[in-house]
Design a protein around this nucleic acid. Structure first.
Lengths: 243, 243
DNA sequence: CAGTGGTCTAGACCACGCG
DNA sequence: GCGTGGTCTAGACCACTGT
């Protein structure tokens, strides 16, 4: 059970976690490491794959393997009324947003509970922190709830969510579904993470008092740094709403 | 970018999803598949690894690769007052519970906010559905809140959570933190899933009205079938508790 | 260009499960 | 014992990155 790749991964992990290999440092080439550990290169690569899955090592084709900088954790706070984009850590994030007009199809129909072909606006938000990606969000809003001054609003790092929240009826309910999985190739590329690093995916549906879905978001967060937090208060007693 | 393993994985995935390969069926041996696709066995194995990560294929050493039966989804409902074990689908689950007396150390001290050495009871719950594992839960309760009739209570499939809930002060708050990751080797073995299948991990801390932690749970659910659901109602207006 | 990782091969040998 | 998957080797060749 103690395969060589695990032994090698353990050794490297210790060196990284103990700081013997500095954050941001480049590891020796795979050929060199393979020689040092006296294994073949595929074996060594599979050891590195384990560390990639843990988010400790990042590979760059043509450049080498690098120890990842420990990054601040991302906390998504559930139950908020404004949109999910504001999972912003305290730190400044650069957020790039691309707005697209489209019409509801397939899963969006079910997600937003609208009729087929219904006009929507999609906001594709990719937030960066420094040079590395941080989160990926697709936000869908019925067209008639989308503000007119699009371009102006999104060119800014400012809180997009607040603007959306301002011009619609008060929310009645927010439903959030959280799941775990491996990212698709495209998502992994967008987030600049390995395909073997788990992602936290959050589906958020906000409904107004009339029961209409005013916003649906699909969020993708890197699993090694993100978690979602939910707090439920039970006023005092009452409400034994258990199944 | 269209590597052979992806092409092979795509082909097999189509055959599985379209039903051309039945659920539960055994795939041809890796050697046969390698011959059919005219690739080497490591390449074919890496293709199967992709499908394992998606939860479509399950490997059994010595027996072969099998198409997994589509299993009913597991929904964890957040914010409940009773313990998390009751994530039971409607279906009957066999739950095996092992109770252990221990004293708070390291992360448990922080988790339950108790002093070091504080007596706790750990319930290690593994629930099965049919012959395959379903969820893994570690529940920690301060010793003095643990019922005396341990053995009797847990030998049953019955709702453990309810019993615990009955004999403690009313809950004031439940905090749930959800994250995604790959399972440790032991966890993967317990859940009988591949190490490359993402898991949803939920940390649940329940506090009573005095602010005391009366229960902390660590749950692990297979990422391909589980999601956590949270509903937040915003009474009407009020409460702009946004950061 | 030289050096890096990415993919793949064609085997070998070991460990497990089942008849 | 035999067939299965699990691990590993010692290369080859391609693709990308930087100088």
């Amino acid at each position: 059970m103690t395969s060589r790749r695990h032994a090698i991964a353990d050794d490297l992990r210790n060196q990284i976690l103990s700081g013997r290999i500095e954050a941001g440092a480049r590891l020796p080439s795979e050929a060199q490491l393979a020689a040092r550990y006296e294994v073949s290169t595929p074996t060594l690569r599979s050891a590195l794959a384990l560390l990639q899955g843990e988010g400790l090592v990042e590979k760059f084709h043509g450049s080498g393997n690098f120890v990842r900088h420990p990054r601040p954790r991302i906390t998504y706070v559930g139950g908020r009324r404004a949109s999910a984009v504001q999972l912003a850590t305290d730190r400044a994030l650069r957020v790039s947003v691309r707005a697209t007009q489209l019409r509801a199809q397939a899963h969006l129909i079910a997600l937003l509970n609208v009729s087929p072909g219904s006009p929507l606006t999609e906001f594709l938000c990719l937030s960066h922190e420094g040079k590395s990606a941080h989160s990926l969000a697709r936000i869908y809003v019925p067209r008639d709830l989308t503000p007119a001054d699009l371009a102006a609003a999104w060119s800014d790092t400012e809180d997009i969510a607040a603007k959306l929240a301002a011009l619609r009826p008060p929310l009645a309910e927010v439903q959030e579904t959280v799941s775990a999985g491996l990212p698709s190739a495209e998502d992994a590329a967008a987030l600049r993470i390995s395909t073997s690093l788990a992602v936290l995916s959050i589906r958020r549906v906000a409904t107004d008092t009339t029961g209409r879905v005013v916003e649906a978001s699909l969020l993708l967060l890197p699993g090694d740094r993100a978690d979602a937090h939910f707090t439920t208060r039970h006023p005092t007693d009452e409400r034994g709403s258990n199944t």
